[in-house]
Computed example of a mutant assay.
Amino acid sequence: MKTKPDANYFDYRQLRCPLSLVRAKLALKQGKKGQYFTFWVLDNSFYTDLKKLAQKYCFEVTSHKEKSEGWLVEIKLLQDSPFSNRKVTGN
């Protein structure tokens, strides 16, 4: 995985879903458009849950890699504060 210079790293390997997902949503809520976030988790359901939320909340899962210590999931924000403003469709 190529690391982005403005990446934010969060190690959630000690947490289980849904707590890791809740913490990730709080971190992403503080983000700005174009920022990358990298999350280390043990449970692959974190990735599948984020994939389900990605379009609704305007972010992209850019990388998902299995490592011996868990999963690395990288997110790119497509708008500011994705969980405080839902994507507006139409018009």
Rank of each mutant, 00 (worst) to 15 (best):
K29C: 09
F10Q: 01
I75K: 01
D49N: 08
L53N: 06
D80P: 07
K65S: 14
Y9R: 10
Q14L: 12
Q30F: 09
L26D: 14
K25S: 06
G70N: 01
L15V: 03
R86T: 11
A24H: 03
F46W: 03
K52H: 04
K76E: 08
V22C: 12
Q30I: 09
L72T: 00
K32G: 04
L19I: 10
I75D: 00
V73K: 00
L50M: 15
F59S: 03
E74Y: 02
R86A: 08
Y36V: 03
L78I: 10
L50R: 02
Y12R: 04
L21P: 00
W40P: 00
L26Y: 03
W40A: 02
D6Y: 14
L42D: 03
N44K: 06
Y57E: 07
H64E: 08
K25Y: 12
C58N: 11
E66A: 15
Q79F: 05
K25H: 12
T48M: 09
T48I: 08
Q35G: 08
D49S: 10
A54L: 13
G34L: 09
L78A: 07
K4Q: 13
Q79M: 13
N44L: 06
P18A: 14
D43I: 08
L78D: 08
P18M: 14
L26Q: 04
F39T: 01
P18S: 08
P5I: 12
K32M: 14
A54K: 04
K4E: 15
L50E: 01
H64Y: 15
D11Y: 09
K51F: 12
G90S: 11
L21Q: 01
C17W: 05
C58E: 14
A54W: 09
K4N: 13
V73W: 01
P18W: 13
C17D: 09
K29E: 14
L15P: 01
D43F: 07
W40L: 02
C17H: 04
K56A: 15
I75Q: 01
L78T: 11
L72V: 02
N85P: 05
Q79S: 09
S20D: 14
T62G: 06
F46I: 00
T89F: 13
T89Y: 14
K76Q: 05
V41Q: 00
R16Y: 15
C17Q: 04
A54S: 15
L53A: 07
S45Q: 05
N91R: 11
F59R: 01
K67H: 07
K87F: 09
R16H: 12
N91T: 07
S63M: 11
Q14V: 07
Q55M: 06
L19F: 13
N91I: 12
K76H: 05
F37H: 13
F10E: 02
T3M: 10
D6R: 10
D11K: 05
R13A: 03
E74M: 13
A24F: 12
F83K: 03
G34I: 07
E66G: 10
T62Q: 04
S68M: 13
G70P: 02
V73H: 01
K76C: 04
R86D: 07
H64K: 07
K25V: 12
T3D: 11
S20A: 14
A54P: 03
F59W: 06
W71A: 01
P18G: 14
A27M: 12
D43M: 09
S68H: 08
Q35S: 07
L50D: 04
W40T: 00
N85T: 14
V73A: 00
D49W: 02
Q35E: 15
D49M: 06
R16I: 07
S63D: 15
Y36R: 03
